[in-house]
Design a protein around this nucleic acid. Structure first.
Length: 488
RNA sequence: GACCCCAUCGUCUAGGGGACUAGGACACAGGGUUUUCAUCCCUGCAACACGGGUUCGAUUCCCGUUGGGGUCGCCA
C-alpha cells in the first residue's frame, strides 16, 4: 500500500442543486480541496438532491461547470463515478432504505402522522409558553391500529428519529470540543412523507457510507452536527472529524445575498476574474498562512494550507481587495495567454469583429496592447475600458474632452504635434523628442501639455501612460485623431 | 425565547503571558515617478468591545456583560 492511501483521508463537498453555486459554498469547496490535496487524500463531490421539488439537473451541470472553471477537480463524483457511489443522493435510495429498516427493527425511529399545519400550531403554542419549540413526541407511541386508522384517512407518515437524552461532543478541528445536550433537540424527521430521506439522514448515512474522514463545512451546520452524530452512531459508523468554517458575510455583516452584488461564482468568472486570483482571495477569507505573504499560486496554497490556521470569526467579503488581488495575478500571466483570454470580451463588445479570424498580425498587436493595459486590469472585462484606443479606428469624446480640446491652447498643441510626428511611427525615444519639440514651440509644459494630447488620442482624461500608448498607434491613426481634434 | 459559535485598525489578518511604543495587506490621505492615474514607490492615518479575576506581568488564560452570527423546517 502506498503512503498516499494509508492515511485514508476523504473529504467531500456536498452542494444541493437548487441554484447557481454561491461564493460562500465555493470557499467551502476550496477548503475541502486544499485539505485533500495537501494531505494526499480524496476529494468527493456529492450532490444532495433530496429536495424533489427544488432540485434541478441543470443546476448539477452548473455546479460541475462552475467548480471546474474555478479550478477544482474532484476524485469521485457524479460525472466520473468512484467505488463508493453513486454520488447523487437521488440515486442512493436503496442504501437509505436499508439503513432505515435497520433502525426500524431496533425501534429507534417511529412514524409520525402530524401534518405541517398541526406542527406549526404546536410550535407556536410552545413558544408562547416559553418552552423549547421542539416536537412533542405525539406520535411516538402510536399503536398499529391507530396507524392504520391514520393511513385510512389518507395520511402518509414521515419517520422520526427517537432522540435519547445524552451529551454529544462535536470534535471540531477549528473550534475545539463543542458539547450539546440533546434535551434541546426534539425527535426529528429522517424520512419525509414523500419517501425521501431528509437532509440530516442522507448526510449522516452518506458520510458514513462514503468513509468520509473529515467534514469541512460552513459554521451554519455546527448545531446540526449532534443530529448527524446521533444517526451515524445509530447506524454503526464512527463519526468523522469536523471542521466548521467561519461564514462569509457582506459589508453590513449580514449573510451574503444579491444585495451585496455578485454572489454566484459564475458571475465572477464571467467578469473575467482569473480563477487563481479568486482562489487566492477566497483562501485568505478565513485562513492565513501565518506569515506576511498575500499572493499565492494554487500550488502554494496547497503547500501551506492547514486547518489549524483557519479563523473562527466570520469574514467580510471585500471586492476592493479582490480587485487588487486580481491585478497581482494579472502580472504573472504570459501575454500570449492573456491576449487569448481577452478576445471573447473584445468580440462581445464588437471591438473586434467576431466573424473574422484573428490574424497573426492582429494577434501580435493585441499582445502588445495587453502588455500596456495589464497593470490596470483586475479582471479580463476591464480590458474594455481602454481597448478601443488601440483597436478601433475612432475614439469617442466625452463632453469634458471636447471642452478641453476646444481651448486655444489645445488647438495650438495639436497643430504643433502634427508637424513633428514622424511618418514611420513613434517609439519611446522619439515620443519624448516630439514632445520636447512641441513643448519648445508652444511654450506649454507639464499637465497642460499632456492632457490635451491624451484627450485627442484616447478620448479620455486618464489612462495608461502616453509614452506607452503612442508606439502602438500608427502614424495614420495619430494623424487622424489630431486632425479630428482640430476640427472640433 | 432556548441552545451553540464568535469578538485585534473601516476590511482581511499576524499575535498563542513579557520579544508589542500591537506587525502585514486592502481601503483611505499626502507625496514621488520632470503629464492624468486604476499601475509602481514612499510616508501617514487607524485596532486589542467592556468589567472582573489568575499572575510579578495580560491582546494573549478564566468568568461575566455587551454586541454580532448560527440553529431550533416533511429546505439543504
Amino acid at each position: 500500500m502506498t503512503e498516499d492511501k494509508k492515511n485514508n483521508i476523504r473529504v467531500r463537498f456536498a452542494p444541493s442543486p437548487t441554484g447557481y453555486i454561491h461564493i460562500g459554498n465555493v470557499r467551502t469547496a476550496l477548503f475541502n480541496w486544499l485539505f485533500a490535496r495537501k494531505n494526499k487524500g480524496v476529494f468527493v463531490l456529492r450532490i444532495e438532491d433530496t429536495d424533489a421539488v427544488r432540485s434541478r439537473d441543470e443546476y448539477v451541470d452548473a455546479i460541475v461547470e462552475g467548480l471546474s472553471r474555478f479550478g477544482l477537480e474532484w476524485d469521485e463524483g457524479p460525472d466520473m463515478g468512484g467505488s463508493l457511489g453513486p454520488y447523487k443522493q437521488s440515486q442512493r435510495t436503496a442504501i437509505y432504505e436499508k439503513h432505515l429498516k435497520s433502525l426500524q427493527e431496533r425501534d429507534l425511529v417511529y412514524e409520525c402522522f402530524c401534518q405541517p399545519d398541526e406542527l406549526e400550531e404546536m410550535k407556536k403554542r410552545k413558544l408562547e409558553k416559553g418552552e423549547q419549540p421542539i416536537y412533542s413526541g405525539k406520535c411516538s407511541d402510536l399503536s398499529e391500529k391507530e396507524k392504520r386508522a391514520l393511513r385510512g384517512e389518507g395520511k402518509q407518515p414521515a419517520i422520526r428519529f427517537r432522540v435519547k437524552q445524552e451529551e454529544i461532543v462535536v470534535k471540531d478541528l477549528i473550534r475545539g470540543d463543542v458539547t450539546f445536550n440533546t434535551s434541546t433537540i426534539g425527535d426529528f424527521i429522517i424520512f419525509k412523507s414523500d419517501g425521501l430521506p431528509s437532509f440530516h439522514f442522507a448526510v449522516a448515512a452518506d458520510d458514513g457510507e462514503m468513509k468520509i474522514s473529515h467534514v469541512i463545512r460552513g459554521e451554519d451546520h455546527l448545531t446540526n452536527t449532534p443530529k448527524h452524530i446521533m444517526i451515524l452512531n445509530a447506524l454503526g459508523f464512527v463519526p468523522p472529524l469536523y471542521a466548521h468554517l467561519p461564514m462569509i458575510v457582506g459589508d453590513d455583516h449580514q449573510p451574503l445575498s444579491k444585495r451585496h452584488g455578485h454572489v454566484s461564482i459564475k458571475e465572477y468568472l464571467e467578469e473575467g476574474y482569473l480563477p487563481a486570483s479568486l482562489m487566492n482571495y477566497l483562501a485568505l477569507l478565513g485562513w492565513s498562512s501565518g506569515d506576511d505573504q498575500e499572493i499565492f499560486t494554487p500550488a502554494e496554497l496547497i503547500k501551506k494550507f492547514d486547518l489549524l490556521n483557519v479563523n473562527k470569526s466570520s469574514a467580510v467579503f471585500d471586492t476592493k481587495k479582490l480587485n487588487w488581488m486580481g491585478m497581482q495575478h494579472m502580472k504573472n500571466i504570459p501575454d500570449t495567454k492573456l491576449a487569448q483570454l481577452v478576445i471573447p470580451y473584445l468580440k462581445s463588445e464588437e471591438i473586434m469583429d467576431c466573424k473574422k479570424h484573428v490574424t497573426e498580425e492582429k494577434f501580435d498587436h493585441l499582445k502588445k496592447v495587453v502588455n500596456v493595459l495589464r497593470p490596470y486590469l483586475s479582471k479580463l472585462k476591464d480590458i474594455l475600458k481602454y481597448a478601443d484606443i488601440f483597436l478601433c479606428n475612432d475614439v469617442k469624446y466625452s463632453d469634458e474632452v471636447t471642452d478641453l480640446l476646444k481651448k486655444d491652447e489645445s488647438q495650438k498643441i495639436m497643430k504643433s504635434i502634427l508637424k513633428y510626428l514622424p511618418v514611420d511611427g513613434v517609439n519611446k525615444d522619439s515620443f519624448n523628442t516630439v514632445l520636447s519639440k512641441v513643448k519648445e514651440e508652444t511654450g506649454v509644459k507639464g499637465k497642460s501639455l499632456f492632457l490635451p494630447i491624451r484627450a485627442a488620442v484616447t478620448g479620455r482624461l486618464k489612462g495608461p501612460e502616453l509614452v506607452d500608448v503612442f508606439p502602438l498607434l500608427s502614424f495614420g491613426t495619430l494623424k487622424e485623431r489630431f486632425e479630428k481634434a482640430l476640427k472640433i
